[in-house]
Design a protein around this nucleic acid. Structure first.
Lengths: 190, 190, 190, 190
DNA sequence: CATGAATGAGTGTTCATTCAT
DNA sequence: AATGAATGAACACTCATTCAT
């Protein structure tokens, strides 16, 4: 793969992200991806091994971006688990709100591939991040939860579902406030 | 379509459910469906218009079954919103636990088809069912929630995510207990 | 094959005639034939061996009818070759005018089948009939023609082409008059 | 469709012409066409939209070639309507003699398609060409005919029928001589 | 005899992948 | 490195034919 042309690779990923967001896997044609990326179809194969690899790369890149932003956010609110948790929810909403395809990310039930591992590792990283925030809150006694590992799963699930089917009249802020409140309430120390 | 053989139609739907549960749409071959249903390939077309219609029928039938079970469960626990809510979560877990393909149901972002309406109507029915339980609980002051319409979305989201990625060591009962507790806690009157 | 149900066989042939007249062979479905004949699809196979046999039977029956009518017409105008020839043209026009599919009859280039023989025998019969009229006219010195066998081919060809593409404004009589005149002129003794 | 490779397109058309000449539409497989054209099956779809379009393209190309040759022939025999007419018959014989499928051309009753128009336009062109030769002959008083538009239809009909069922012993020249004589006789001024 | 539900071989079409330029 | 024309394996879908009722 060419080194300096990281640009072109990103153009392809952007195009693919947008198309996989709109249509299911089997309805996205590599012809379309190439066209949208202003790239020859053969070029796709210089940067990715095939359609599935491209698909995973899309998910992976976007997922990694999300994790990075969440890490930043956690760092910014050190020692304030409530703010950290709200920040996580906020980042999740921002990610999912505009990237329908991206829902696949949290799904992972479908594609099974050799390097599925790299992939589920990334997913595990997200959940661990959340779980750690929960544990630190429990330790600091601002949260109460017998199974933070499960709760870590709930939170992306909550955000995902509300982003997919959000009521028309509702703004992102409304959703953030309500979902954040819902989770904090559930975790309130007894 | 033949009139009486609802049986054969169901055999096809069963086979398709099982296959769509294991593989993504484009990896499921109609040859396989036919074989699994012990039916000629042409027979599929007597009962369904094509692959997509079959896919939707699978989702629809399973979704309808779920709604029915939830309705029964709600009726059984009349006047006890907490028990109703726990029952809903229980039914959701039972449905999602074994039917990966079924996750598509709560997703719906992807497939777009003519009779998508019949389809999203069914989905709306589920959410309304949950919302009504929440509202009755609010009225009876066993729940407190400013946006039961949003919360109605969260609940399937929570169940979905935990079913998809549940920790190995956890039984269905454990999950039900924790998820139910989580939600009830979040809704506790202040 | 049932003896008394010659009726049903004819109903099938009528339906098939009408459908093969409107569409090319591969666009005519046996489902349609059965429906149009108010007969179960399986019944077709009680009377005909398959689709091709049915197709040929359609052509054959109609062709035989035509030959019969032409024979009658020739007998009626004994000793008047001009009237006989005009009669032949008239019958051809009447047959072809309403039976587009029927054009296949004079064609025969396409289907090749075992009993194609019975078939081309019938076709030969038509041409022989015309040729004989021509020969009797030549003998009586009302026609002049060095190759009546070729001319016998021209006449159905002429009628066929004008029936297929006749000018809108032209009646059957107009066509008969002109085509008949054309042929008689060509055969005029020198 | 690729720009420069008119060659490959013609190779496909040649192969298809030859196959459609030998078998009816539904017996011609695209696999065979591809193989005969030494081309991958998918390549067919780069140049034609589907089987029917290919079929029509075959007819159209050959028909256009015929018309061109007839036009040249007419130009070569300017001011000699008899020679022009004989030339037309000769070209028709040459075309039809070797291209059975080609009979479809003058037929056109069967296939109905969107761009059927382009198609019947071409057919109309042929008939107009003949009609004009007839009219110029009438004007010059070497022909006599009350309906040159009808006669224009007869001529391809005559050639067609004799080519389809020509007697074995007859050469192309014999046929040309007789058919030409037949027509000229029919048109002789009275 | 009559039927039409069931069948599966057969075929048109798609589209990821390759490779000559 | 970049391309896009060419490819053919793979697949959905059709429909003549069969056969249990």
């Amino acid at each position: 793969m060419p080194e300096d042309n990281e640009d072109k690779k990103n153009r392809i990923l952007d195009a693919a992200t947008s198309l996989f967001a709109k249509r299911p896997f089997h309805k996205v044609l590599l012809d379309d991806v190439a066209q949208a990326a202003h790239v020859g179809k053969g070029t796709l194969y210089l940067y990715f091994e095939g359609k599935e690899e491209l698909y995973l790369a899309v998910l992976f890149r976007n997922f990694s971006k999300l994790i990075e932003r969440i890490q930043d956010n956690i760092a910014k609110n050190e020692n304030d688990p409530k703010a950290q948790l709200t920040g996580i929810i906020e980042e999740l909403i921002k990610s999912l709100y505009n990237h329908a395809a991206f829902y696949e990310l949290l799904r992972g039930a479908i594609v099974s591939l050799p390097d599925n591992n790299r992939w589920s590792g990334e997913r595990a990283k997200l959940y661990k991040l959340i779980e750690n925030v929960l544990r630190s809150g429990i330790e600091k006694e601002v949260f109460s939860d017998s199974h933070p590992d499960l709760t870590a799963l709930y939170i992306p699930g909550i955000v995902r579902s509300v982003c997919l089917r959000r009521p028309e009249a509702m703004t992102t802020e409304d959703i953030l406030r309500h979902a954040g409140g819902f989770v904090l309430e559930a975790l309130r120390p007894r």
